[in-house]
Design a protein around this nucleic acid. Structure first.
Lengths: 291, 291
DNA sequence: CTGTTAGCGCTTTCAA
DNA sequence: TTGAAAGCGCTAACAG
């Protein structure tokens, strides 16, 4: 498909001519400078409207060396949790006049690095990044080399400097365990354990801490498997031998959803026979609330 | 946070000087032109590496009037279905060297228009757009006025020209109904009906067509409500009077998930007492498969 | 308050 | 095969 050209796109110079002023004046009008007399401003505005002028941020950027763009580098766009994040970033941008590039590392440090370099070439003002599994300090080194301001979200490269926006997963899990204990659950199992990144480790550590703190039975962790799954036979084994689990803390809501149906197949009634706690607060996790 | 400046970013001119060639030659090396002698090419490459040169696409774009960027304007980023779409677009971009801006209209035509204008100012090469509910032909007019190439996805403004990438929702639903009929289901209800946009209308029409074609009981549609919900009492009413529904076609997988738990509360066994068909093929919809 | 001028970093004729 | 020079559309001194 041929791009319908903007043949000699109408530039500020054209607007200025049309309005009978200089380019500089037109530029000032563009940015609502108080240095322009009202009637002049009106004339310029009218000219812009008449000519269908479109501000060329690329040109402005070249001059100012800032673009009003940020890069959002996510480890897995397909995870609905990130959808909420993206929506939040978009909302903030809409308010501030910025806009964001989106890039998916798909948990590949190589792709991540490629995307970052591309974003750098586009001269983004900064990066919001959730490091792919397997990222190490070379990621931070690269960002510093590229002089790219960044903030890490959700996950954190160990030993990295700079800001991180995340969740106190450990504390959240401790609170969940405390709640379950108050509901007289004593055999709590963790479903969906991983060691792959900081957010996963924090959850497991918080869980272990809480179990010890309340003196609960130490059951083996059920490992995560596949996208939103876990080792189902490992959980089955726990049901079929030793102290019977009566509650689970899940790595996230998607795992909790999977667990819901697993429990259904075992004819366990959720909330009665077995308590389930998820994490993320996905909208679709609200559906399965019981009567 | 102050942006750590790229003070006098190393430009192509600097590279050229370092390599002892002219800027034009360096530019040719950049784009692998065959017009450069191998030793020269090597020298330039080495200089780039030594200086940590970063290609400035903003400047190139100003000259070439294309940016290698596209705008992805979605009606609701938070919907996980769009996450897959975004991931797919990102993958294609990664292959082609393009990158995309993301913008969420959040089903607001006004916000949508604002985002489009912003994208236009960034000189995107084209737009992938899923029109917000309530968009009409003024959207198309605006795109044409801005000389912005576009392709509509999933939804379609009635009477618009240009390409549309979507799904034959009507046909899909007819096939689903045919399948249910083959499984001896006769009282099929549609859950999550809307009239808000083309994709919703297509589903409802396909459903009506199929019901008529197979001569099935015409049950009232159950309307969508809230984000991923539907009018639950309307469905309850169908269960409690008249011919008892024995299957449902859901507007999408999220609605199907909600329905799953609704049926659970009514102690209906899915797959036996009642058949459920969803749409979208979300990963999290795979979880609830029965044994 | 408005105009002149000099670039931002790149690509692209056109000559050599 | 390489270099010189013009210019994309904008902003930022600096003069007037």
């Amino acid at each position: 498909m041929k791009k319908s050209v903007h043949p000699a796109a109408v530039s500020l110079l054209a607007v200025a001519k049309e309005a009978g002023v200089s380019r500089a004046t037109a530029s000032l009008v563009l940015r609502d400078s108080p240095l322009v007399a009202e009637p002049t401003r009106e004339r310029v505005r009218a000219a812009m409207a008449r000519l269908g002028y479109i501000y060329n941020r690329g040109a402005a950027n070249l001059r100012q060396n800032r673009t009003g763009t940020i890069g959002l580098v996510l480890s897995n766009i397909a995870n609905p949790f990130f959808s909420s994040l993206t929506a939040g970033v978009d909302e903030a941008n809409d308010a501030s006049g910025a806009i964001c590039f989106i890039a998916n590392s798909a948990e590949s440090p190589e792709k991540q690095s490629r995307q970052i370099r591309r974003l750098r070439e586009h001269n983004v003002d900064g990066l919001i990044i959730c490091p792919a599994i397997g990222s190490d300090h070379t990621l931070i080194d690269e960002l510093r080399l590229l002089a790219l301001p960044y903030v890490q979200v959700l996950r954190e490269i160990p030993g990295s400097e700079g800001d991180v926006v995340s969740v106190d997963y450990g504390l959240g899990i401790e609170q969940a365990v405390a709640y379950l204990v108050a509901m007289n659950r004593r055999n709590i199992v963790f479903v969906g354990a991983m060691e792959t990144h900081s957010a996963a480790q924090a959850r497991v550590e918080g869980f272990r801490r809480a179990i010890r703190h309340f003196g609960l039975a130490e059951m083996p962790l059920v490992e995560a498997m596949g996208g939103n799954g876990y080792n189902e036979s490992a959980l089955d084994a726990l049901f079929d031998s030793g102290p019977r689990p009566d509650a689970a803390i899940c790595y996230n809501d998607l795992i909790a959803l999977t667990l819901f149906h697993h429990l259904g197949r075992r004819a366990l009634k959720i909330g009665t026979d077995f308590a389930v706690v998820g994490m993320d607060d996905l909208p679709q996790a609200k559906a399965p609330t019981l009567p």
